[in-house]
Protein backbone atom coordinates (compact mmCIF):
# COMPACT_ATOMS: atom_id res chain seq x y z
CA UNK A 1 0.00 0.00 0.00
CA UNK A 2 2.80 2.39 0.95
CA UNK A 3 4.54 1.80 -2.33
CA UNK A 4 1.34 2.45 -4.23
CA UNK A 5 1.02 5.87 -2.55
CA UNK A 6 4.63 6.74 -3.37
CA UNK A 7 4.13 5.73 -6.96
CA UNK A 8 1.05 7.97 -7.22
CA UNK A 9 2.94 10.93 -5.82
CA UNK A 10 5.90 10.36 -8.12
CA UNK A 11 3.56 10.28 -11.10
CA UNK A 12 1.87 13.49 -10.03
CA UNK A 13 5.29 15.13 -9.73
CA UNK A 14 6.34 13.98 -13.18
CA UNK A 15 3.12 15.26 -14.68
CA UNK A 16 3.62 18.59 -12.89
CA UNK A 17 7.13 18.95 -14.30
CA UNK A 18 6.03 18.08 -17.84
CA UNK A 19 2.74 19.92 -18.03
CA UNK A 20 2.99 22.89 -15.65
CA UNK A 21 6.72 23.65 -15.66
CA UNK A 22 7.27 22.38 -19.20
CA UNK A 23 4.17 24.28 -20.33
CA UNK A 24 2.75 21.43 -22.35
CA UNK A 25 -0.92 20.50 -22.20
CA UNK A 26 -0.52 16.79 -21.96
CA UNK A 27 1.98 14.01 -21.60
CA UNK A 28 2.39 10.85 -23.64
CA UNK A 29 0.57 8.05 -21.95
CA UNK A 30 1.27 5.00 -24.12
CA UNK A 31 3.97 3.55 -21.83
CA UNK A 32 1.86 3.82 -18.69
CA UNK A 33 -1.38 2.46 -20.07
CA UNK A 34 -1.73 -0.48 -17.73
CA UNK A 35 -0.15 1.08 -14.67
CA UNK A 36 -2.30 0.69 -11.58
CA UNK A 37 -1.23 4.04 -10.23
CA UNK A 38 -2.55 5.77 -13.34
CA UNK A 39 -5.85 4.05 -12.92
CA UNK A 40 -5.94 5.21 -9.29
CA UNK A 41 -5.18 8.77 -10.32
CA UNK A 42 -7.97 8.71 -12.85
CA UNK A 43 -10.46 7.33 -10.36
CA UNK A 44 -9.38 9.96 -7.78
CA UNK A 45 -10.20 12.65 -10.36
CA UNK A 46 -6.65 14.00 -10.53
CA UNK A 47 -5.88 12.97 -14.08
CA UNK A 48 -7.69 13.08 -17.40
CA UNK A 49 -7.03 10.92 -20.44
CA UNK A 50 -7.51 12.35 -23.88
CA UNK A 51 -6.34 10.75 -27.13
CA UNK A 52 -3.73 8.60 -25.41
CA UNK A 53 -2.38 11.64 -23.51
CA UNK A 54 -2.41 12.36 -19.78
CA UNK A 55 -3.28 15.74 -18.32
CA UNK A 56 -3.77 17.08 -14.78
CA UNK A 57 -7.18 18.24 -13.63
CA UNK A 58 -7.44 21.35 -11.42
CA UNK A 59 -7.62 19.13 -8.33
CA UNK A 60 -4.71 17.13 -9.70
CA UNK A 61 -2.65 20.30 -10.10
CA UNK A 62 -3.31 21.26 -6.48
CA UNK A 63 -2.22 17.84 -5.29
CA UNK A 64 0.80 17.71 -7.59
CA UNK A 65 1.96 21.13 -6.43
CA UNK A 66 1.99 19.89 -2.84
CA UNK A 67 3.98 16.78 -3.81
CA UNK A 68 6.54 18.87 -5.71
CA UNK A 69 6.82 21.21 -2.77
CA UNK A 70 7.53 18.36 -0.38
CA UNK A 71 10.04 16.81 -2.74
CA UNK A 72 12.03 19.98 -3.22
CA UNK A 73 11.86 20.94 0.45
CA UNK A 74 13.24 17.48 1.22
CA UNK A 75 16.08 18.12 -1.22
CA UNK A 76 16.86 21.44 0.46
CA UNK A 77 16.80 19.81 3.86
CA UNK A 78 19.24 17.13 2.73
CA UNK A 79 21.64 19.64 1.15
CA UNK A 80 21.46 22.50 3.62
CA UNK A 81 21.06 20.81 6.95
CA UNK A 82 22.40 17.29 6.60
CA UNK A 83 24.97 18.42 4.00
CA UNK A 84 24.33 15.28 2.02
CA UNK A 85 26.63 14.35 -0.88
CA UNK A 86 25.15 15.58 -4.10
CA UNK A 87 24.45 12.30 -5.84
CA UNK A 88 22.62 10.89 -2.85
CA UNK A 89 20.32 13.87 -2.49
CA UNK A 90 17.85 12.74 -5.06
CA UNK A 91 17.54 9.16 -3.83
CA UNK A 92 17.24 10.06 -0.15
CA UNK A 93 14.82 12.88 -0.85
CA UNK A 94 12.67 10.58 -2.96
CA UNK A 95 12.14 8.31 0.01
CA UNK A 96 11.92 11.05 2.58
CA UNK A 97 9.38 13.31 0.89
CA UNK A 98 6.62 10.77 1.25
CA UNK A 99 7.02 10.79 5.02
CA UNK A 100 6.48 14.52 5.33
CA UNK A 101 3.01 15.36 6.58
CA UNK A 102 1.48 18.81 6.63
CA UNK A 103 2.78 20.16 9.95
CA UNK A 104 6.22 18.73 9.37
CA UNK A 105 6.29 20.41 5.98
CA UNK A 106 5.63 23.79 7.60
CA UNK A 107 8.35 23.29 10.19
CA UNK A 108 10.90 22.23 7.62
CA UNK A 109 10.04 25.18 5.39
CA UNK A 110 10.40 27.58 8.34
CA UNK A 111 13.67 26.03 9.52
CA UNK A 112 15.09 26.52 6.07
CA UNK A 113 14.03 30.16 5.91
CA UNK A 114 11.26 29.56 3.35
CA UNK A 115 13.50 28.71 0.40
CA UNK A 116 12.26 29.60 -3.04
CA UNK A 117 14.22 27.08 -5.09
CA UNK A 118 15.53 23.56 -4.74
CA UNK A 119 19.31 22.87 -4.84
CA UNK A 120 19.02 22.43 -8.62
CA UNK A 121 17.50 25.87 -9.05
CA UNK A 122 13.90 24.75 -9.70
CA UNK A 123 11.12 26.72 -8.00
CA UNK A 124 9.53 25.46 -4.80
CA UNK A 125 5.80 26.30 -4.81
CA UNK A 126 5.12 28.50 -1.76
CA UNK A 127 3.00 27.09 1.04
CA UNK A 128 0.68 28.86 3.46
CA UNK A 129 3.54 29.29 5.96
CA UNK A 130 5.65 31.30 3.47
CA UNK A 131 3.16 34.15 3.43
CA UNK A 132 3.13 34.99 7.13
CA UNK A 133 6.85 34.34 7.38
CA UNK A 134 7.70 37.42 9.44
CA UNK A 135 6.18 36.47 12.79
CA UNK A 136 7.32 33.03 13.69
CA UNK A 137 8.46 31.40 16.86
CA UNK A 138 10.47 28.51 15.45
CA UNK A 139 14.19 29.29 15.26
CA UNK A 140 15.53 29.13 11.75
CA UNK A 141 18.58 27.20 10.74
CA UNK A 142 18.94 28.69 7.27
CA UNK A 143 18.12 32.34 6.76
CA UNK A 144 18.87 35.19 4.41
CA UNK A 145 21.95 37.20 5.43
CA UNK A 146 19.60 40.11 6.11
CA UNK A 147 18.14 38.19 9.06
CA UNK A 148 21.45 37.21 10.63
CA UNK A 149 22.35 39.20 13.75
CA UNK A 150 25.25 41.63 13.69
CA UNK A 151 28.59 40.18 14.93
CA UNK A 152 27.30 36.65 14.22
CA UNK A 153 28.93 34.23 11.85
CA UNK A 154 27.17 32.27 9.14
CA UNK A 155 28.18 29.76 6.52
CA UNK A 156 26.75 30.39 3.09
CA UNK A 157 24.17 27.68 2.37
CA UNK A 158 23.16 28.79 -1.10
CA UNK A 159 22.66 31.83 -3.29
CA UNK A 160 19.12 32.68 -4.22
CA UNK A 161 19.44 34.57 -7.48
CA UNK A 162 18.37 34.19 -11.06
CA UNK A 163 20.39 37.23 -12.08
CA UNK A 164 23.65 36.32 -13.73
CA UNK A 165 25.22 39.74 -13.09
CA UNK A 166 24.54 39.44 -9.39
CA UNK A 167 25.89 35.89 -9.37
CA UNK A 168 29.08 37.09 -11.01
CA UNK A 169 29.45 39.76 -8.33
CA UNK A 170 29.04 37.06 -5.68
CA UNK A 171 31.74 34.99 -7.39
CA UNK A 172 34.00 38.05 -7.52
CA UNK A 173 33.62 38.53 -3.78
CA UNK A 174 34.06 34.83 -3.10
CA UNK A 175 30.59 34.50 -1.59
CA UNK A 176 29.99 30.84 -2.43
CA UNK A 177 28.37 27.94 -0.58
CA UNK A 178 30.41 26.84 2.46
CA UNK A 179 32.18 30.22 2.76
CA UNK A 180 32.12 31.56 6.30
CA UNK A 181 30.84 35.12 6.67
CA UNK A 182 31.03 37.46 9.65
CA UNK A 183 28.29 40.08 9.51
CA UNK A 184 29.69 43.40 10.75
CA UNK A 185 26.99 45.90 9.93
CA UNK A 186 23.55 46.20 8.35
CA UNK A 187 22.97 49.89 7.91
CA UNK A 188 23.29 51.91 5.71
CA UNK A 189 24.84 49.02 3.77
CA UNK A 190 25.69 45.47 4.73
CA UNK A 191 29.33 44.92 5.64
CA UNK A 192 30.67 41.39 5.71
CA UNK A 193 34.04 39.91 6.45
CA UNK A 194 35.25 36.82 4.62
CA UNK A 195 38.73 35.68 5.44
CA UNK A 196 40.83 38.81 5.52
CA UNK A 197 38.63 40.83 3.17
CA UNK A 198 35.74 43.11 3.93
CA UNK A 199 32.97 43.91 1.49
CA UNK A 200 30.03 46.29 1.54
CA UNK A 201 26.89 45.23 -0.30
CA UNK A 202 23.37 46.50 -0.66
CA UNK A 203 20.21 45.07 0.85
CA UNK A 204 19.11 43.38 -2.37
CA UNK A 205 22.33 41.39 -2.61
CA UNK A 206 22.27 40.55 1.10
CA UNK A 207 18.75 39.15 0.72
CA UNK A 208 19.99 36.71 -1.91
CA UNK A 209 22.63 35.11 0.31
CA UNK A 210 21.23 32.35 2.51
CA UNK A 211 23.36 31.37 5.47
CA UNK A 212 23.41 28.78 8.19
CA UNK A 213 24.27 30.34 11.51
CA UNK A 214 27.41 28.92 13.13
Amino acid sequence: MMERKERIEELLESLWIITVEGQKDKSDFSLLKDDDAVKDLISMGYVLVKENQLGLTEAGKMEAQKCIRRHRLAERLMTDVFVEKSKLIHETSCKFEHLIHKDLEKSICTLLGHPKTCPHGKPIPPGSCCRGASKETLKKIIMPLAELEIKKRGKVAYLQTGNRDVLQKMIAMGVLPKTEILLLQKFPSYVIQLGNSQFALDQEMAAQIYVRQV
Partner: peptide
Protein backbone atom coordinates in the same frame (compact mmCIF):
# COMPACT_ATOMS: atom_id res chain seq x y z
CA UNK B 1 17.16 48.10 -13.66
CA UNK B 2 18.07 49.30 -10.19
CA UNK B 3 21.82 49.08 -9.93
CA UNK B 4 23.15 46.51 -7.47
CA UNK B 5 26.09 47.46 -5.34
CA UNK B 6 29.08 45.82 -3.74
CA UNK B 7 32.52 47.17 -3.06
CA UNK B 8 35.63 45.84 -1.37
CA UNK B 9 36.58 47.72 1.78
CA UNK B 10 40.38 47.71 1.94
Amino acid sequence: ERPSFYIEIP
